[in-house]
Design a binder for these strands. Structure first.
Length: 505
RNA sequence: AGCGGGGUAGGGCAGCCUGGUAGCCCGCGGGGCUCAUAACCCCGAGGUCGGUGGUUCAAAUCCACCCCCCGCUACCA
């Protein structure tokens, strides 16, 4: 396949103090769909995900389990990888912030920033709970009778001061504002949100180190061995270390120019205000695009990382018999703009009526017809112009939607192709003919085109259909009627077994 | 409170930027077909587009105010 361009897509690196859930899966699947779509378009793609393995919380979680942090994160990283295998995530690298090259990058980058005088020593002052060993900001602690209490222990907080190093974020205020008014953050209103926050409060310097006595589990500050680097700064730099920062300049530039960060709206601030400034401090341009998505919720409960009530990935994969339907359903109801609440009933309904009825049944019926009527061999013949026009329009629309990260609408458009194919079968009634070559060839072309578009969302299913009907999925170049000339239908599979609604548990 | 997003048929959403017969999916009613996973196709019913006022020949779409829902408000990754 011809290499058209390059593309770099990232997920956030996840904090592995617990197993991944649907929220993590949602972001990761979205990034995977983008990666696979760009590959289909002919781009050389680098797709990065990983784990953010330093910090106090992990240090403590590990200690509670009687493990040293490294042993613990080694295990958790494997858990994440296992889930991404289960969900068919086609990452090119799984980066861990404990990886040697990453640690090197963090040190190099921070040395550079330090040497430019953008880091200074100061004092961090905050309300601290000795039991939690953590600071609480206004709004997080409980106020009772003028006293500040820890939200978990309900014990009085202490005002403590500790030595820390600050990054001069404030000196990047104009720069960050300027970048935010460009077309980087998508959808755009998220940029407005950050912009107005800065407009109102300004950009304050941020503390970027912790005393090693309190947080030893982190990258040592290159200029002061008594401090470790704050996890967020450590974490953000993964995006550049994965490319070989300051090592492989050619490769680095090739991909950095086209980097797309996929993130949840909760970490927007760090991926814009802080990240843009850090990048500027090491002479790098901001990301090409930050794609921000809202959350999915189940019956009003947030499925965020810190929420107690989570829908497990295993549950959905088991319920719908594989990764592909889960990928489909999550993207089918995805929205960048606003939080989406879904129910098991809704998912069941979409699974049954869309995947099983519209698509699964179409594949089955065209497969059966081809085998019965033509012995499974369907050669190219005259193309139905009316059908072709409709399909072409939908393909174009789908491509636009995918390039605009509108996954839900893209899927609806793809399914229109299948609906069109079903209608075409009804119209041409191939079961009444002796050798309905024209009808079946045209229908198969629709199935092939739709399946190709569906491939980034449902890679296994697409592959299975291609095998069964005897075609190949190659690239977007084949997204036109007549591009495939000879089908060898070897199977008429039942792709999706329906689920009975109401059996949710 | 400030800022941001939203309130469109029974449910889930698009349209709003670039005003001009209100659109898609599910569900529902009727019909067709029988190749197919009780699947598929066609037709139909159902909405005065949160409220009020304004701009306009014309507003779901622009402006003002109000009501309701949700999110964000930085060192918690």
């Amino acid at each position: 396949m011809r290499i058209v361009g390059t593309f770099y897509v990232t997920t956030p690196i996840y904090y592995p103090n617990a197993e991944p859930h649907i929220g993590h899966a949602y972001t990761t699947i979205m990034a995977d769909v983008i990666a696979r779509w760009r590959r289909l378009c002919g781009d050389e793609v680098f797709f990065l995900t990983g784990t953010d393995e330093h910090g106090l919380k992990l240090q403590k979680t590990a200690e509670e389990k009687g493990l040293d942090p490294k042993t613990f994160v080694d295990r958790m990283a494997e858990v994440f990888k296992r889930y991404w295998r289960l969900l068919n995530i086609s990452y090119d690298r799984f980066i861990r912030t404990t990886d040697e090259d990453h640690v090197e990058t963090v040190k190099k980058a921070l040395s550079k920033i330090y040497s430019r005088g953008l880091i200074y020593k100061g004092v961090y002052r905050g309300w601290y709970c000795t039991s939690c060993e953590a600071f609480y900001a206004p709004g997080e602690y409980i106020e009772e009778g003028g006293k500040k209490l820890c939200p978990t222990h309900r014990k009085p907080l202490e005002l403590i001061e500790e030595e820390t190093y600050f990054f001069k974020l404030s000196s990047f205020e104009n720069y960050v504002k300027e970048q935010l008014s460009k077309d980087i953050v998508y959808p755009r209103f998220y940029a407005k949100e950050v912009l107005s926050k800065i407009e109102r409060d300004g950009l304050r310097d941020i503390s970027i180190t912790r005393p090693k006595t309190r947080v030893y589990w982190g990258v040592e500050a290159p200029w002061d061995p008594n401090h470790t680097i704050y996890v967020w700064i450590d974490a953000l730099l993964n995006y550049v270390s994965a490319l070989g920062y300051d090592e492989d300049h050619e490769r680095f530039n090739r991909f950095w120019n086209v980097v797309h960060h996929v993130i949840g709206k909760d970490i927007l601030w760090f991926h814009t205000a802080v990240w843009f400034a850090v990048l500027a401090a090491i002479d790098l341009p901001p990301p090409r695009k930050v794609v921000v998505h809202a959350f999915i919720t189940l019956k009003g409960l947030k499925i965020g990382k810190s929420a107690g009530n989570v829908v497990s990935i295993d549950y959905l994969v088991n319920r719908y018999g594989g990764a592909d339907p889960v990928r489909y359903l999550l993207m089918r109801f995805s929205s960048l703009d606003k939080d989406v609440e879904f129910s098991v009933e809704q998912l069941d309904s979409a699974y049954n009526t869309e995947l099983a009825d519209i698509y699964g049944n179409l594949v089955r019926r065209v497969g059966v017809l081809a085998q019965k009527k033509l012995g499974g061999i369907v050669e190219a013949t005259e193309i139905d112009r009316e059908l072709e026009a409709k399909i072409r329009e939908r393909v174009e629309k789908t491509r636009e939607l995918l390039n605009a990260f509108k996954f839900s609408e893209a899927l609806i458009m793809i399914f229109d192709v299948f609906r069109e194919a079903n209608a075409y079968l009804n119209k041409t009634e191939p079961w009444r003919e002796e050798a309905p070559r024209r009808s079946l060839y045209n229908t198969l072309e629709c199935v092939r085109i739709g399946t190709t578009l569906l491939q980034p969302f449902m890679p296994n299913t697409a592959e299975r259909v291609a095998k069964a009907l005897g075609f190949e999925i190659r690239s977007v170049e084949d997204l036109r009627m007549g591009a495939w000339s000879s089908y060898r239908v070897v199977e008429a599979p039942i792709l999706f077994k329906k689920v009975r609604s109401g059996s949710a548990s």
